[in-house]
Design a binder for these strands. Structure first.
Lengths: 154, 154
DNA sequence: CACTATCCCCCACATCTCCCCACAATGTAC
DNA sequence: GTACATTGTGGGGAGATGTGGGGGATAGTG
């Protein structure tokens, strides 16, 4: 499975529609059939999964016991802000308004290819986290993750 | 089987009727034929199962030992407040009044797709449990699902 | 046998979604 | 450079969806 990569800026029209970047479309598996699932990210951004990759996530979810307290909470809060999307005939997505509110996206959206998924940011929020991360500390992070021993805690 | 997902708010009219969200309808299997089972949830909300998935729940129930005291209690209290529902021709369901009382739903109901079932909440009760869940623990839950290991104990 | 309450059908209408068309901007081939 | 294809952007309109109310059938009550 090829990774999504690159950054693309597109305008959002007043109906909440954004063109899906052509270059990213080329790495979406044909199996996904223009179908996506979008949801709240951990940062104030949105995560977009093509159908085939989303199904792997659902598979994980389906193994959680829906009657245990923890299981109920996990499933509810995870799926609550998720929605299925289909590209229209002009290869656009319409962003649900509650997700635009959450991510503070209004007239411009930035797509960032990020491995198995795509992140969608408002320019302001993206600037913000960019500024929080100095080049030095980025270097440091990079070394930690890519360097010898990978310890997966944060 | 695709999971139910997303959150949808609808008004309840003075006859106790609520529109069933169109997006959720799309993930109800045609086998269910607009037939549902509704019952008290484990939180102060209602659980709604399309017919075909409800049958899986019943199967689980049938495996509980009916002669142990615990088993009898569980089965009795689970089924006691359950009721079958059918969508009307406008795709609405009418909520039984004892379940509206239990969940404190009056003029507004919030549907939450939650995997194999749908939860129905009153706005007030939903706010309440949202406030109990901090962002940090949400993050933790998220990582559990998207990250590797899911531990299925309570 | 009335009377009442409930259920479920139909109708009406406002709103929203999505499909289609149009066209500008950009990139590519010759 | 010119022609053509692809991509990005905008808007109009048909159909789906959400919401409310009227009225007839049915059942339960006194």
């Amino acid at each position: 499975m090829p990774s999504f990569k690159g950054q693309y800026e597109h305008s959002v029209d007043n109906k909440g529609r954004v063109a899906f970047p052509a270059k990213l479309r080329k790495t979406v598996s044909p199996a996904a059939q223009d179908r996506f699932t979008i949801l709240r990210g951990l940062e104030p951004c949105l995560y977009l999964y093509p159908q085939d990759r989303w199904e792997l996530v659902e598979e994980k979810l389906s193994k959680i016991n829906n009657f245990s307290r923890k299981g109920r909470t996990v499933i509810r809060n995870f799926l609550r802000f998720a929605e299925d999307l289909v590209l229209d005939k002009q290869n656009r997505l319409s962003l649900p308004s509650h997700l635009m509110d959450f991510s503070e996206i209004s007239s411009t959206a930035i797509f960032i290819g990020s491995g198995e998924r795509i992140e969608i940011w408002s320019p302001e929020k993206l600037d913000q986290i960019d500024n929080e991360l100095s080049f030095e500390s980025y270097q440091e992070l990079f070394e930690q993750v890519m360097g010898g021993d990978i310890d997966d805690e944060d």
